Simulated scan of single mutants.
Amino acid sequence: MVKSCSAFVCTERNTEGTEVHFFRFPFGDPARLENWVKALRRENFTPVRGSSVLCSKHISSSYIIVRIGKSIVSCRDVRVILNNDALLREGASQAVAAYNKRQLTPVKMEDGSYSLITEFNDLGGGRFVDPRSKTTFRYDHLRKEASDYQHWNPDPLSESWRQALEHQFRAYGSDHYKNGHCAVFSKSEGSTVILTACIEDHQFQSQNFWNGRWRSIWTTSFDPHGTGNAVLKGHLMIQVHYYEDGNVQLQANKEIKENLVVGSESATAKDFVHTVERAENDCHSAIAGSYQKLCETTFKALRRQLPVTRTKIEWANLASYSIGKQLRNQ
């Protein structure tokens, strides 16, 4: 069910894909609940359990510590232990910053496009670079918002290679990752060009009790004036969590190393993406095969060997059982 923020004149709604987080009113803590209602300053307002929510635009950033899927973990208990709000804000910011970079967190840019928060575009001091738009920006790791955009000059040696790869890589991402985002970063060290391509795609289906995320990082380095092959290294990370009446998780990591033919910028980009596509398709197929085998072996072994009567059912003589007679009569 779509819910709207309870704050006065706020139009935020918890629709799928929104970057704004939503918090339920703390009905389990009457004192905090009273403070929330007073802070809203809405005359005759009474929150409704299960439907009233506030969006993150009206919640102090010191309240939020980490986001996993659609769940927000409060740092209220940590605050009691530390008894130092300044230390808590500093520690939470560092922890969430490291988490966001590991998760390749998507960030909406000024022009409406998306980039990724990673270690590869981290300039330090809370600033990141989006090479596609040639801008740097300050990123709030707690609110997941970009601001303070500034012009950025790309690396002259590697930029043309990055642009060629980005063109091919974004087309690949659009074809294979419906809700995903990708980014390509580059730098040079001496005469060596280093290219890094990242993909992040996720589905957070809290209403259906499951969340999932795909991340992949592909890196290569080569001398653009040389000829021959380079090494393309990939790191695939898959997480799936299903938690309806149970707790089933999949966490898979795969390291890949392939040869990359270095030619022209366009040809190298095409071979790069072709290699990525083949490797990621193989990984998808392997996981699907593993789950099929899991259903046919492991899960089957967990089933009850005998019915509650402690007697095996002779399926060939099903008609002799009462249920078989009932079915036959129908």
Rank of each mutant, 00 (worst) to 15 (best):
G28V: 09
N121A: 08
F272Y: 03
R143D: 03
R76K: 14
N317M: 08
G212E: 00
P224S: 05
T275M: 01
S93H: 14
A252N: 05
S160K: 12
G234M: 00
F120N: 11
K187C: 10
I217P: 00
F23T: 06
Y139S: 02
K38S: 15
A98Q: 13
G125W: 06
E189N: 12
A95Q: 06
K57V: 11
I194D: 03
I65L: 14
R143K: 13
R328Q: 13
E255W: 10
P307T: 07
G212Q: 00
F299L: 08
W161N: 01
N208F: 08
N153E: 14
L236G: 01
C5G: 00
I117R: 02
D245L: 11
E166N: 09
S322M: 07
N121Q: 08
W36M: 12
C55V: 02
T136Y: 02
I199S: 01
M237H: 09
A97V: 09
V248P: 00
C10P: 02
A92D: 09
G125E: 08
S93G: 14
G180D: 00
A164I: 03
A197F: 06
G173Q: 06
F120T: 09
E145V: 15
C182H: 05
M109Y: 05
E296T: 07
N247V: 01
K144S: 14
K134T: 10
L87H: 11
T311N: 14
A288P: 04
R132V: 12
K300D: 05
E110F: 11
C75Q: 11
S74P: 00
L302S: 05
T135L: 11
G324T: 03
A7M: 05
F23G: 07
R170D: 13
A279T: 06
A269W: 01
G180M: 00
V96T: 14
G173T: 08
K144N: 15
S62W: 13
S4L: 01
D85T: 15
D77S: 14
S52I: 06
E258Q: 15
S4Y: 01
C75P: 10
S186Q: 04
E43K: 13
L82I: 07
Y149R: 04
R132M: 10
E244P: 02
G112D: 04
W161K: 02
C5N: 00
Q239D: 05
N281A: 15
S60A: 14
T275S: 07
Y114Q: 07
S113N: 09
Q207C: 11
S115K: 04
Q205P: 02
G226I: 12
H225K: 15
Y321T: 04
F272G: 00
D282Y: 07
Y99A: 10
Q150K: 09
R304F: 13
